[in-house]
Design a binder for these strands. Structure first.
Lengths: 231, 231
DNA sequence: CGGTATCCGCAAAGATACTG
DNA sequence: CAGTATCTTTGCGGATACCG
């Protein structure tokens, strides 16, 4: 750890460990379950292999993740959050909630399904804990599952480990449209964009609980205000 | 804003705004009330004046703080969090709670009274809201005051704006010793290290509510574990 | 596939001098 | 006191080469 703040302040200590570029985004990627090096590269467009490698070692040294061997043909590894690492994900959720008040990002920014799901969990953190139907989502071809155990909302990539009480299948665009209430579950199922396997009322409740807040569009007023700020 | 993550992910968006070095520590400094440029320099040892200036402009542009003119002799300005900026302080509190599990910092690290107070508020965030006695703390020569309004705990530097129900006077070392339970209110008052102006039971309750969790000492085991992590 | 190592160009951060 | 200007150093981004 070069470039520390050298402060006896717990916030500064946290940032000594987590504050470097990419670090918290690596934790975000691992927040849906273990991932391999190449998975992480895909979820962190722009990071170099050398930098990812360095960050992973740093996080391993600080007991935030562990490197586990995967069985199967050939040698393969996955990176998995420790308990201390898992404890960071609610903080990322708070950052997500805070960022919901920021102007909407440019349309050319990268997008991933898992980021939308991460935001859905974060913004619904409190209410979502009550949603105790194991729900499997097939977005495009990628499976995920969610489950509120009363205290937390579990969100994982991969197929549900038990038979889900609700299964939703749609494109990423439809997921986003329904989660931001630009369309409804009824309309999306009617058009065939959303396939609900299970009770449709439960599906409606799911999207009511895990709604993503709309980013405020960049109004002329807010743009002016930002321009007005001194150079 | 150069060097953005360019991701349509709310966590990444938050880090685009807050993730640069020093940025969150500036918010921390302003979390106890408005501060002037030189105050900030003192609270951020190692930052350059150019970098502080750049960060302040950046935060002003993103509506996280405002630059307000101070009345008095000469031209003088203070920096003050906006509502959007205030909304970040609970997140810093979460980082503080998380960092409490990290190994203790080296003894030569910088220290400030306000950082300890910030940690006291953070770790007591829930319980502290119930502590509704306006409390003034004179640590060394610097006054602060705290007040739980039922929902949040207000923490500000400067003398209390109303007559406090409790006044505590001690050194920073004593504050830390009592807050980490290395000594008691009774013992500290008996030795003269702590002067309580008000009900002593209320003072005891104050430190019970706003206790700082001890950082786990760096055990030989934890050191070994960190060394064991691959280079 | 799953990384490590190296090099280059650039942008951010650190240090310090200087000015209204 | 409140910054701006300038210079040096470090970290990051990107590419590529290499290894088990």
């Amino acid at each position: 750890m070069t470039r520390t703040y050298s402060q006896k302040c717990l916030a500064a200590r946290a940032l000594d460990v987590l504050g470097e570029r990419w670090t918290l985004l690596i934790v975000r990627e691992l927040g849906l379950g273990p991932r391999r090096f190449s998975d992480l590269l895909d979820g962190l467009p722009g990071i170099g292999t050398n930098l990812l490698s360095a960050r992973l070692k740093h996080l391993e040294q600080h007991d935030i993740l562990t490197r586990v061997a995967l069985d199967g043909p050939g040698v393969s590894f996955a990176y998995q959050l420790t308990d201390r690492g898992e404890a960071i994900t609610p903080i990322l959720g708070n950052l997500v909630q805070w960022a919901a008040g920021l102007p909407a990002p440019p349309p050319d920014y990268e997008n991933r399904t898992r980021w939308a799901l991460f935001a859905m969990r974060a913004t619904a953190a409190d209410r979502g804990a009550a949603f105790d139907t194991v729900t499997e989502l097939i977005i495009g071809d990628d499976p995920f599952w969610m489950y509120g155990d009363g205290a937390h909302v579990l969100l994982r990539s991969g197929p549900a480990p038990v038979r889900p009480g609700l299964r939703l299948r749609c494109s990423q665009a439809t997921l986003h449209a329904v989660a931001t209430r630009r369309t409804t579950v009824a309309a999306a199922t009617a058009s065939g964009d959303l396939i609900v396997d299970g009770d449709i009322d439960t599906a409606t409740e799911f999207f009511a609980v895990f709604a993503i807040p709309d980013a405020p569009a960049a109004t002329e007023k807010s743009l002016k205000q930002r321009r007005r700020a001194r150079q």
